[in-house]
């Protein structure tokens, strides 16, 4: 162990922090975007609108059948082609994550909506609320409350999955660390450090999710 040189970490903190910022920014934006799109997909599926519900279901099944890394890779080439101009790897990756995560969030949210008693919908409709209003004010708030732990767990998985952006060369936390590791020939130190950082954030998140789960159960 005497060969370890941890100064490589401390000397490069600003660079690593920049990478970590990218990882966090990507995670947060993808969670928000994925949840918004996922909620829309879930609502369309539950409303049983003839063609739209089928399309939403097809969307969900399509993205859940693809490896994430493939989606990242494809979107990196497809988005600029689609828009007719380069958008940079961050945005192409963000779009890939939002599209991909929405499929998973949609299933979580659909389960959450189904867990709300049907009598609640009847009660909302009985006071004259429209179907969308009933969803907005009665069903979704209750559904989200019961889903928070699961949504958080999904966000943790997403946080780990953002490391896949290395395939398109986006400088997230892992890629930044790898660059330093190669430049300074300090592979072991850097990758141990990276593992610890991922572990600390994910473990803390899991503990919090478990805490929320317990709190909800009481």
């Amino acid at each position: 162990m005497g060969d370890f040189d941890y100064s490589v970490i401390f000397n490069n903190i600003p660079f690593l922090v920049d990478g970590l910022k990218v990882t966090f920014l990507l995670t947060i934006l993808a969670v928000i975007g994925g949840m918004v799109l996922g909620t829309i997909l879930a609502l369309i599926r539950i409303a049983q609108i003839p063609i739209a519900s089928w399309l939403a279901a097809a969307y969900v099944n399509f993205f859940r059948s693809l490896p994430l890394i493939l989606v990242i890779f494809w979107l990196y080439f497809l988005v600029p082609l689609f828009l007719g101009r380069p958008v940079g790897s961050f945005y192409s990756v963000l779009i890939a994550f939002v599209l991909f995560e929405a499929a998973y969030y949609s299933e979580i949210i659909r389960a959450g909506i189904s867990s709300v008693r049907s009598g609640q919908i009847a009660a909302g409709r009985a006071i004259g609320l429209t179907y969308p209003q009933t969803m907005r004010y009665i069903v979704l708030p209750q559904a989200f409350r019961s889903m928070v732990p699961v949504l958080l767990t999904q966000a943790i998985v997403l946080f780990q999955d953002t490391s896949l952006v290395y395939v398109v060369g986006l400088k997230d936390f892992l890629v930044s660390a790898e660059l330093i590791a190669n430049r300074d020939q300090r592979l072991v130190e850097m990758f141990v450090f990276v593992a610890i950082v991922y572990f600390v954030f994910c473990f803390a998140g899991s503990l919090y999710a478990r805490h929320l789960q317990k709190k909800l159960a009481t």
Partner: peptide
């Protein structure tokens, strides 16, 4: 028309 249900169905949140 107001309606009152057997299981109350107040909005719990």
């Amino acid at each position: 028309i107001g309606m009152v249900f057997q299981s109350f169905e107040l909005f719990p949140h």
